[in-house]
Design a protein around this nucleic acid. Structure first.
Length: 413
DNA sequence: TGTCCACTGGAAGGGAGGGCTT
DNA sequence: AAGCCCTCCCTTCCAGTGGACA
């Protein structure tokens, strides 16, 4: 006997059939501790049911404070209400500006929600911007209803492409005859309105909402309600849930993190063949999440960033630390040459360093050495062994496996 | 007090890659 | 096929800068 799968097959899983309640995309029946926000947003949007344009709304709050969930929850309810009481058509469009981050793509995305036939669809590139603008406007106007456009992570859009697109969107209502649109902007950055032109700012923030981070008690409630749906009874007792809540509360009250943590704890327990989750499983899960995040971030880096990171890893491995931009650039150049890749300029590398700093892969602080110049001081902020292993899995970098970085500070080429 | 280093980070622009219009 | 347009990734150019040193 002894099929290799045998020991992995479990008669009784720790999850119920509603395991998705512990996954990020899940939209629950109720959102604990967000009743006030839901009510407020619903109040604002009610006018859509009468065919009037609701105020534009700006929503602020850190990641995992339920902004997106509240907005989607209210959107779902609004569409339901529309079927019962609504006199006019309502469309609720959700756009995540993390990926849809140019004026073109935003308009294209919106326009395609109103395209009635396949041939009407707007291609993802190619059109001049004013053509796409008028087409989108005509589509919306032809449809004749109230469109609520949610721009999630709106700060990303503005920091990349400026606020021109927002001005244009807000302006749409002045030129349309049959339709109205209102905009819900969601931002992680409280100071995001600083980036906006005064006119755009006042138009966009007719209403403002701020979501505070959850505290440990609230996180616990959230986790309990999800666990009740997704887990079998007795799998995760209160201590374990409290621990998950406490860990997530320390990391800025991020509910998504808390939920991920609980789910992965259960997965680990399940794989071990345990019948219930222990605090130890939670700590293991915490480590796993941290490592997975790093690994994922590194794997998806573009080639030059990988070479750059490897340059930093190898430098630290050979005992050098606190490199300056210039020093790191020299190592990077040497590595690039070794694998026959033409190196980018220092200016570009400077940007890549900043990018990886925001990703949390390294720490770069601008420091002045007086007479000896002013530059970034760069440090790896992930364990170098792990980073190295992941980087060397890249086929281009594999040949750099045994490269030694000379200890001396000056490298001449 | 001024000098001057080693950059920083903004601005402009090129050119490849996508796809449209005529 | 030629001529556009928009985006992405880079390069080039450059004014600006914090602070140790003379």
């Amino acid at each position: 006997m002894g099929n290799i799968f045998e020991k992995h097959i479990r008669k009784t899983s720790l999850f119920t059939e509603h395991r998705d309640a512990l996954y990020p995309g899940y939209l629950p029946e109720s959102l604990p501790h967000r009743e006030r926000e839901i009510d407020h947003l619903a109040e604002i949007l009610t006018s859509a049911l009468y065919g009037e344009k609701p105020s534009n709304v700006l929503i602020f709050g850190k990641t995992g404070t339920g902004k997106t969930a509240v907005v989607q929850f209210v959107g779902r309810e609004l569409e339901n209400a529309q079927k019962v009481y609504g006199k006019s058509k309502i469309k609720y469009i959700y756009i995540n500006c993390e990926t849809v981050d140019t004026p073109y793509s935003v308009l294209q995305n919106i326009g395609n929600h109103f395209a009635e036939r396949w041939e009407e669809r707007i291609p993802f590139t190619g059109w001049p911007i004013d053509k796409i603008f008028t087409t989108t406007m005509e589509y919306i106007d032809r449809w004749g209803g109230v469109a609520i456009i949610v721009l999630d992570e709106i700060d990303k859009l503005v920091s990349k492409s400026g606020d021109d697109i927002l001005y244009k969107l807000a302006h749409l209502n002045d030129v349309m005859k049959n339709s109205r649109i209102s905009i819900i902007g969601i931002s992680n950055e409280l100071r995001f309105t600083d980036l906006l032109d005064a006119r755009v700012k006042s138009r966009l923030s007719e209403e403002k909402m701020i979501f505070a981070p959850y505290d440990a008690m609230q996180l616990k409630d959230i986790l309990l309600s999800r666990a009740k749906i997704a887990l079998r009874e007795g799998v995760a007792d209160e201590d374990v849930i409290e621990l998950c809540a406490a860990i997530a509360a320390q990391e800025h009250g991020d509910a998504r993190r808390a939920i991920d943590l609980l789910r992965i704890s259960v997965e680990i327990a399940e794989r071990e063949g345990a019948t219930r989750v222990t605090e130890n499983h939670v700590y293991l899960a915490k480590n796993k999440i941290e490592l997975d995040c790093v690994a994922e971030a590194i794997k998806t880096l573009p080639l030059h960033s990988k070479i750059l990171l490897l340059a930093l890893v190898l430098s630290e491995e050979s005992g050098r630390s606190n490199l300056t931009t210039g020093e790191l650039y020299n190592v990077y150049r040497m590595l690039s040459r070794k694998i026959d890749v033409s190196p980018l300029t220092q200016r570009r590398i400077s940007d890549l360093i900043t990018e990886m700093d925001t990703l949390g892969l390294l720490n770069a602080n601008v420091r002045s050495f007086g007479r000896y110049g002013r530059t970034k001081v760069i440090e790896l902020s992930v364990p170098w062994m792990e980073a190295k292993n992941i980087l060397l899995k890249d086929e281009y970098l594999f040949d750099l496996k045994n490269v030694q970085i000379p200890r001396q500070r000056k490298l001449e080429f």
